[in-house]
Design a protein around this nucleic acid. Structure first.
Lengths: 156, 156
DNA sequence: GCATAACCGACCGCTTCGGTAGGATTTATC
DNA sequence: GATAAATCCTACCGAAGCGGTCGGTTATGC
């Protein structure tokens, strides 16, 4: 499995927030009930989303969570990364501060790592899919009862 | 991390086999030494590759492993799947015998699963990268000492 | 028959996953 | 100001997978 249920639950949570008009905050309890997910577990996940600046919270009675930005401006690479940690195909891959990708098997020189070509392609494919999908799309998609497969290919 | 070191080690093993002329089998011990990987662990991995029909073995003295097919005909989706199991972005995704993809959250009817669009795109991207990369490419790539990034995009 | 190698299965320490539990803090409302 | 509703925080727990080791069995060339 590429991702765990953390990403699954977290994305569902975001979609649930994206469905709301936007003014009043939504309590985690109502999300948990709507999606049939354990409330105490969602608390852990939403904490990650909040720390990543994707949702904002208001405490106390009638409190809850809201999207920090319009759903159309939230791309899924940020959401999934907040939940699962850095998205890399392999342990030896890590992003540098300058946005480059390094494979720790390359001992700084030019010796080519036999697997790098493969993992670069995989990472490219995943990033394209995640960064090319907005929360607004998912909200829209899930609100249709008979979606069809027509729109699926557009960011692949 | 999308994949574990099983895929990493296994692919390196395949590349190592792909480097050989092809006639005489290569012992696991020599592969382990060349790649600096633990022999006993490689035994487990190569067993999966053998069961998947990707390599053939000859036992006894001067025995070892060979590719079951020419490297150009081996695509990495088969290799990675043999090592890691079915490649699906999420637990609820599973292939049907007819090659379709199901999400177990869809209770057979038309209610759209809010995450399906996203995971379909991710799976599409990964499959494209894996199925579009052959072992021959990796062998070729790793034999160059200064590869450059030119060829990386071709299957992404 | 002996060295070499593939095969096989059990085990082990560690980390992550999915989830639970219990409490503390903040805030709207009566 | 008490109370209820909600976020927040920390600790814990069983199960599973990962990365690896070990000991032994079988097959084969010399």
């Amino acid at each position: 499995m590429l991702f765990s249920t953390k990403a699954e639950y977290g994305v569902r949570l975001m979609v649930e927030l994206g469905r709301q008009p936007g003014s009043t905050p939504v309590s985690l309890g109502s999300v948990a009930e709507a999606e049939r997910l354990p409330l105490s577990y969602l608390e852990h996940l939403v904490a990650k989303l909040r720390k990543a600046g994707l949702v904002t919270s208001t405490r106390g009675a009638h409190g809850g969570y809201r999207l920090a930005k319009p759903a159309a401006e939230i791309t899924m690479d940020a959401v999934v990364e907040a939940l699962e940690g850095q998205i890399a195909p392999m342990e030896c891959f890590h992003d540098t501060p300058e946005g480059k990708v390094l494979c720790s098997h390359e001992s700084d020189g030019d010796r080519a790592c036999s697997t790098k070509l493969l993992w670069m392609r995989v990472q490219g494919g995943v990033n394209k899919a995640l960064a090319g999908t907005t929360l607004a799309e998912l909200v829209e998609f899930s609100s249709h009862s008979a979606p069809g497969a027509a729109a699926i290919g557009s960011a692949a």
